[in-house]
């Protein structure tokens, strides 16, 4: 009698623990996949902007030939973007490219004919749109990293994370003012 009860209770506990392990493990995998997905969203947008730059530089050159340093800086930043591999490197290259593009558009302000150019206006809207998408993708990525990193550092999921090699992910840092997450209460 007593033995049977103990065996039954032990079995029940074992099933509960195994169930918990499976749930936590799956949760960690889901969170990690979400980060990969978020990262590819950033990558897509970075690539889009990267592809628009030669066209932009050519258009601006047509009106503002002697602004050599600006073009050089943009081209250099674009090359750095291509070489970047890790999250940190890409974030750094992205920041550099964003600021050089900003100075390119600031220079363009001095050329009324350029500002009136249809192709330039279209490119400017597209690049601005892409940059805001990069910002949103970065927000989604960093939110995903935050929740994943928190779960692999807190009990009990940290035990499983250690056993199965889930390591902390790197944030996509920006030099500009990052939009703060807001506190929401219901």
């Amino acid at each position: 009698m007593a033995l049977e009860t103990i065996v039954l209770a032990g079995g029940a506990v074992l099933i509960l623990v195994l169930g918990g392990v499976v749930l936590i493990y799956n949760g960690l995998v889901t969170a990690r996949n979400r980060i990969d997905n978020a990262w590819s969203q950033i990558d897509v947008q970075l690539k889009r902007r990267y592809d628009m730059i030669p066209n932009l530089v050519e258009t601006v050159k047509g009106y503002a030939k002697h602004e050599k340093t600006v073009f050089e800086n943009v081209t250099k930043a674009r090359a750095a973007m291509m070489g970047a591999q890790t999250v940190g490197e890409k974030a750094k290259a992205d920041n550099m490219l964003t600021s050089t593009l900003k100075s390119l558009f600031a220079v363009a302000e001095n050329y009324p004919q350029l500002r009136a150019n249809e192709n330039f206006k279209l490119l400017q809207e597209e690049i601005a749109g892409t940059e805001s998408k990069i910002a949103y993708a970065r927000q989604f990525y960093n939110d995903s990293v935050l929740s994943y990193n928190t779960s692999i550092q807190t009990v009990p999921s940290n035990i499983l994370a250690g056993m199965f090699g889930f390591t902390a992910k790197e944030y996509f840092k920006t030099e500009g003012a990052e939009k703060e997450n807001v506190k929401v209460s219901f």
């Binding site: 979400r34 997905n37 978020a38 947008q45 749109g129 998408k133 910002a135 993708a137």
Partner: peptide, 8 residues
């Protein structure tokens, strides 16, 4: 498009 990215 941007907000859909942010919302995942």
């Amino acid at each position: 498009e941007g907000l859909a990215i942010a919302a995942g």
